[in-house]
């Protein structure tokens, strides 16, 4: 069994579930879908840069140590995680606002923006 294959499969499934939830009419499911896709994409960056089951990227000198993880994707993902938290919070607030104005969770009711 190969590790990368397994993780790629996991990413695929996370993405599938994310897309499926994204296409639902319920806003809550939409938010969940965003979270799933966000996680899947973070993992894509992580896996695509090559997996090294080894030391974290801490250096003591100038030379990269053998078996050291790549620091760059980690820095990318770290910011992405925090950003997606912000997005989720914002979407939830929007969802709440939407719910409190229309009293429904159904996205299909949102076709008109002009009048409530």
């Amino acid at each position: 069994m190969e590790m990368e294959l397994m993780l790629a499969l996991l990413i695929g499934i996370l993405f599938t579930v994310g897309v499926y939830l994204l296409l639902r009419r319920s806003v809550l499911k939409l938010v969940l879908g965003i979270i799933f896709i966000g996680n899947a994409i973070n993992l894509i960056i992580f896996v695509a840069s090559g997996l090294v089951a080894g030391k974290p990227p801490f250096v003591t000198g100038q030379e990269p140590e053998p078996e050291m993880a790549d620091p760059l994707p980690q820095a990318l993902i770290l910011t992405a995680i925090v950003i997606s938290f912000g997005i989720v919070a914002f979407t939830l607030a929007l969802k709440y606002k939407y719910f409190s104005l229309t009293n429904t969770d159904d996205l299909d009711q949102l076709t008109e923006t002009e009048n409530e």
Binding site: V82, F85, G86, A89, L92, A93, Y96
Partner: peptide, 12 residues
């Protein structure tokens, strides 16, 4: 970051 998270969650 502290301020952002707290503002978000306190508001909600």
């Amino acid at each position: 970051v502290t301020g952002v998270v707290l503002l978000l969650i306190f508001t909600l």
